[in-house]
Simulated assay, not measured.
Amino acid sequence: MSDSEESEMEFQDEPSALGVKVGSTRTVVSGGDVADPDVVRTLTCLATYTDALTGEEHVLYGEEAATEYPDRVRYMLRSGLPESEETTELAKRFLEEFSRANGLDEDSVVVYAIPTIDNDTGLERLTDIIESGPVGERLIRSYPESLCGAVPALGDGLDAIEDTFLAVNMGSTNLEACAYRRGEQLSPFSTGAITGTEVDRRIANYVEEETQGRVNIDLTTAREYKEDHADFEDYEPFSDIIQQPGGGTYEFTIEDSVMDAVDEFVDDAVDEVANVFMPELANDYMKIYQQALDNPVVLTGGMACIPGIVDEFEARLSDELGREVEATTADDPATAAARGAHRIADRLVELDEY
């Protein structure tokens, strides 16, 4: 049997479709039936340890690595992209371990949701990670994260690919904004000054101020406070306990620190979108600017998960622009980019584009 005949036999069945978002904090994969997808998520980190009996090196990833080895765990995409050859290799190893542990299909069509960042070197490293990855033997494609995240927000199919709308991606490492016209990205804008990670830093600082210097929390704890308690609709103060030096515990209550930080984030995001991004878009594409504002502004990214943040953004942007603006987001913004990428991958399979 010739190599070509053997290859045809290996790939005679239809490949599976996968959507992947490798984020600075979490990695999300969506597979299976796009109407009821199987979604797997984990922290984008890994740690190595030496087997006490055999001396072999082993790898842990995700929550297990962060919990068991907090002193040596590596988050290889903290800035949103790999910053060095070392973190590139770590990210490759992370994807290999994650794919193996979750049984991701090598014979697959994969769409990656990637950030819009003006960093050619970092994007080249990310491309290297993607192309050498353990999945996507049939086809690998990449689409902007905000477009992928908008897909579940704008319908049950791929309506976002045919629409004209504005997207604002509220991520951990960047605030991104752009217009989309039938899937084409127009006037992409990105800033690293207004981010979910900056909110975490503010929460840590504000907790120290609110407790008169008695409590110092790390960024991981600050992020957990944000994810567990930030709520524009029904926020309630909460309490926590820390171990004091020399013994004993100290219980404290947080009244304002979390909401002050996320409230400032919304103000900063609205100001940047209304007064930097939108004037540039209007200058370059006035008709698209007008058409896009007739449709909902789609919020994507981890910060869009905070209850009530869509309504707050909508009201404040409307006030800033002096006109009524509607905003929306997917039912689960944290997994929306992977689920949207999954739908795109599934359509590519349907069209035999592999």
Results as ranks from 00 to 15, higher is better:
Ser142Trp: 02
Gly213Met: 15
Pro188Ile: 04
Gly183Asn: 07
Pro152His: 07
Leu166Ala: 11
Glu124Met: 13
Thr164Pro: 01
Ile117Glu: 00
Ala153Val: 02
Thr164Gln: 04
Gly155Gln: 11
Asp159His: 05
Val215Phe: 11
Cys148Pro: 09
Ala167Asp: 00
Arg141Thr: 14
Ala113Asp: 04
Phe165Arg: 00
Gly149His: 07
Asn174Phe: 11
Ile161Ala: 07
Thr197Phe: 10
Gly171Cys: 07
Gly192Cys: 10
Arg138Leu: 05
Ile130Met: 08
Tyr180Pro: 03
Ala150Arg: 00
Gly196Leu: 06
Ala167Tyr: 00
Glu208Val: 11
Asp156Tyr: 10
Leu175His: 04
Glu145Met: 06
Gly213Lys: 13
Glu137Ser: 13
Ser172Pro: 00
Asn119Phe: 03
Arg214Leu: 15
Leu126Lys: 08
Leu123Val: 09
Met170Gly: 04
Thr211Glu: 13
Pro115Phe: 02
Phe165Ile: 01
Gln212Leu: 14
Leu186Ser: 06
Ala167Gly: 06
Ala177Trp: 00
Pro144Thr: 09
Glu184Arg: 13
Gly136Ser: 09
Leu175Asp: 03
Glu176Ala: 03
Glu210Lys: 12
Ala193Arg: 06
Ser187Cys: 15
Val111Met: 12
Glu184Gln: 13
Thr116Lys: 13
Asn119Ala: 13
Asp120Thr: 14
Thr127Trp: 10
Gly122Val: 04
Thr173Pro: 01
Val151Asp: 02
Phe189Pro: 00
Ala179Cys: 11
Glu184His: 11
Phe189Lys: 00
Gly136Ile: 05
Met170His: 06
Phe189Cys: 00
Glu162Gly: 07
Thr164Tyr: 01
Leu186Asn: 01
Gly136Cys: 05
Pro188Gln: 08
Leu139Thr: 05
Leu154Phe: 04
Glu131Val: 08
Thr195Lys: 01
Ala204Cys: 14
Gly155Ser: 12
Thr211Tyr: 07
Leu175Asn: 05
Leu175Val: 09
Glu124Trp: 08
Glu145Ala: 07
Gly213Trp: 14
Arg141Trp: 08
Ser172Lys: 01
Arg202Asn: 14
Gln212Ser: 15
Thr197Asp: 10
Ile130Glu: 00
Ser187Phe: 06
Gly149Pro: 05
Thr197Met: 10
Ile194Asn: 00
Asp159Met: 04
Cys148Tyr: 02
Tyr143Arg: 14
Pro134Ala: 03
Pro144Gly: 05
Gly133Asn: 12
Ala167Arg: 01
